[in-house]
Structures are given as structure tokens and as C-alpha cells.
């Protein structure tokens, strides 16, 4: 899966969760910029992303993520 596809699928999942505009979505987006992206929703989000992409993250990877860009790289590295 190339970066565009990863990013597109990620946007759909994020939008599903947080009802984001496309303009708000980018590699620099972080949790504190998004209404509802709290620590529990972060876990739910990660669970859904793992299921969606068919990848597995370790607990460490999940808790160390800083922004959407890092998330996309992590997925790209595993697909």
C-alpha cells in the first residue's frame, strides 16, 4: 500500500471517529488538536486502524505515537 492509499484510508477512519474536515487532516495533526481524541479513544482508534490495515502494533508503539505522520509511517512499515 502506498502513502497516498494509507493516508486516504486513515482519513476515512479518522473522519468516522471524529468527523474531521479533510483540510484539518495532515501529518502534523496531533491528539490535542482534535475534539474527542482522548487517551481511551486513542486506544479505540488504534484497534480499529489495526483491524482495518491488518497490522499489529505493540503497546509501546501505540503509546509512543506523536502525530498522524508517525502513525502513517508505522502502518507503511508494516504493510
Amino acid at each position: 500500500m502506498d502513502d497516498t492509499q494509507v493516508s486516504e484510508t486513515l482519513y476515512e477512519i479518522f473522519n468516522d471517529f471524529f468527523e474531521l474536515d479533510r483540510s484539518e487532516f495532515g501529518p502534523d495533526l496531533t491528539a490535542d488538536q482534535v475534539d474527542g481524541w482522548d487517551s481511551l479513544n486513542h486506544i479505540r482508534l488504534m484497534l480499529n486502524i489495526q483491524q482495518n490495515f491488518g497490522v499489529k502494533f505493540s503497546s509501546g508503539e501505540i503509546s509512543d505515537l506523536k502525530n498522524v505522520g508517525q502513525l502513517a509511517s508505522l502502518i507503511a512499515a508494516k504493510t
Binding site: 487517551s39 481511551l40 486506544i43 479505540r44 484497534l47 503497546s59
Partner: peptide, 12 residues
């Protein structure tokens, strides 16, 4: 893993 991260009792 889910237990450690969020004290969720079982797989989602």
C-alpha cells in the same frame, strides 16, 4: 496489551 494500555478487561 489492551489491559496494560487501558485496563480493558478483554479483547475489543
Amino acid at each position: 496489551g489492551l489491559w496494560h494500555m487501558a485496563r480493558v478487561p478483554f479483547s475489543n
